[in-house]
């Protein structure tokens, strides 16, 4: 029985992995911006699936809510507002495009090599999400508060950059 569950687990892990990679490839290679967006959503949901397989449904759902629910929504909104006219879509890939492929691949290879001498510790167990809460209020309190400050500064900066044109127009710079 256990063996069967392992097989199913590996299979579904492989499916989710394939989904992530396929979404990523679609996001990079598609000619149409909308297809790129769709590929990104698929890839991000795939990443959530990976988190799920690694034993944290909570992080998986956070991933979906933050990346699909917030980031992708903003991007989709931006796409609707600024889409290019005509069929031109994206430019064909330049030779430089190999850099972002080779670099992470090299990093992955290095990581795997570094890990290869470690023992396998077994399958992931479910993570109790209350640990995350205690950690955020305890050991990681400073980064937690800094997130808030950072994001606030980011949005204020973005807004003031965006509002410069309006102020110029109204003549009260």
């Amino acid at each position: 029985m256990d063996n069967f569950i392992f097989k199913v687990y590996y299979l579904s892990f492989a499916i989710v992995l394939a989904q992530t990679v396929a979404g990523g490839v679609l996001a990079v290679a598609a000619k149409n911006l909308i297809h790129c967006f769709l590929g990104m959503v698929v890839a991000l949901i795939g990443v959530a699936g990976l988190y799920y397989h690694l034993g944290s449904p909570f992080i998986a759902l956070m991933q979906v809510m933050i990346y699909v629910g917030a980031v992708c929504v903003a991007i989709a909104f931006g796409l609707s507002l600024t889409r290019k006219a005509g069929e031109e879509g994206l430019k064909p890939l330049s030779p430089m495009a190999v850099v972002p492929v080779v670099l992470p691949a090299g990093m992955l290879a290095a990581t795997l090599k570094g890990l290869s001498h470690l023992e396998k510790t077994g399958m992931p167990r479910k993570l109790d999400e209350s640990i995350i809460g205690w950690q955020l209020l305890g050991n990681y309190l400073f980064p937690f508060e800094i997130i808030s400050v950072l994001l606030t500064l980011a949005v204020i900066g973005a807004l003031s950059v965006a509002l410069i044109r309006r102020r110029e127009k109204n003549g009260n710079i």
Partner: peptide
């Protein structure tokens, strides 16, 4: 039953808009 049922439902609600 899942421990994160509430979040699951909220997260999936987004896909309707998608």
């Amino acid at each position: 039953e899942t421990d994160t049922g509430l979040l699951l439902v909220i997260a999936l609600g987004l896909l309707n808009t998608l």
